[in-house]
Design a protein around this nucleic acid. Structure first.
Lengths: 189, 189
DNA sequence: CCGCTCATGTAACAGGTTACATGATTTA
DNA sequence: TAAATCATGTAACCTGTTACATGAGCGG
């Protein structure tokens, strides 16, 4: 039961439709949680059933009608309760790490390719997050925004996402460099 | 089908029993993948059935017998195939991030407590990983080990784990500091 | 004698992924 | 005219978590 709270947290800032929420939790954008659209729709149904969010139908012209959801008082209370419980640390689970663990026993050419791909992906997320942060803080300096800004939650999670992707990129580049160096050393043998 | 490859990768270095593997993938030690013991045993059964690992019974005195597993040629080939396929980037999924996303809408006292807890946990993993790295490289300098060491896969994944936990710790401390500062600012209003 | 480590599992459940389905409108 | 976007779901499946079960030896 974790997606529930992620959805509630996402709805704190604005009324959103299932479709918009699905995009928030999509791979490209997700800075604090990730989920498939199907999961989001299913969760919204459950949340509404449990009275933690309330939806209202909005008629649109030229495109399908949509339902906008907002957090109810019960939903707010549930978030409060959730925050009070300890969050168990995320377990490391990344295919790329498994592949690197197997280095020296698999083809390093392909492994270097995987690392290079991932570094590029991380870079694109870095660009995305940097832009989001700039938008959030507007013309204020970061320190000032963090002290006096009206809402820092999303900013802090975005900072985490940025740092994480920078780490990803740097580590991938380092690992790729190491494997390349070793190939040269090996050839010399 | 990801745990399979993690198990295969773990068995590259040594013949291990299910029990030993379970510890490798346990929360405390896992530097490249995490899984419950039950999952490990189940996966081993499947891997053996598929001929990717081979187990041999080892009789012991004073304690239960155990089965040691090693990677077969087919298992090696499977790992090779796996490495050739692109690994999809890990999706961010951390309860703590959700809690921080909701900051400004929930009690910051408890949130700061959560962040402090996590920072301490991260620190303990930093210590653990630092020790593992020292053990792996022995008396060699890191650069030298990475260039000429016989096996760098585990070292690289451990480096990733270390960097990740350092990031965790730093971010948690930063976020907690920001929330504390804001409480002061708020009181002054 | 209590709890820990070694050693291996089964069963039920919760959570997440993939595939499939529909249908209108806007953009290239 | 093909593809992308808006908008919402169902169903089957795979993966991971939690609870439970067993049994011997070892250390405090």
């Amino acid at each position: 039961m974790a997606l529930r709270h992620a959805v509630l947290a996402a709805l704190l800032d604005a009324e959103l439709s299932g479709y918009q929420l699905a995009k928030v939790f999509d791979l490209g954008v997700a800075n604090f949680w990730h989920a498939q659209p199907q999961q989001v729709y299913a969760e919204l149904t459950r949340l509404e059933h449990d009275g933690l969010v309330a939806g209202r139908e909005v008629a649109q012209e030229g495109r399908p009608n949509k339902r906008l959801f907002r957090v109810t008082d019960a939903g707010q209370a549930e978030l409060e309760r959730f925050t009070a419980t300890a969050a168990k640390p995320t377990a490391m689970r990344d295919d790329l790490l498994v592949q690197v663990q197997a280095a020296d026993h698999v083809d390093d050419e392909t492994l270097i390719a995987r690392l290079t791909e991932r570094a590029a992906f991380a870079q694109s997320k870095i660009d995305l997050f940097s832009g989001l942060l700039r938008t959030m803080r507007g013309d204020r300096a970061e320190e000032e925004f963090l002290r006096y800004g009206e809402r820092v939650g999303p900013y802090l999670t975005c900072l985490a996402g940025l740092a994480f992707e920078q780490l990803n990129r740097d580590w991938c580049e380092r690992a790729a460099a190491v494997l390349k160096e070793r190939r040269k050393a090996h050839v010399r043998d």
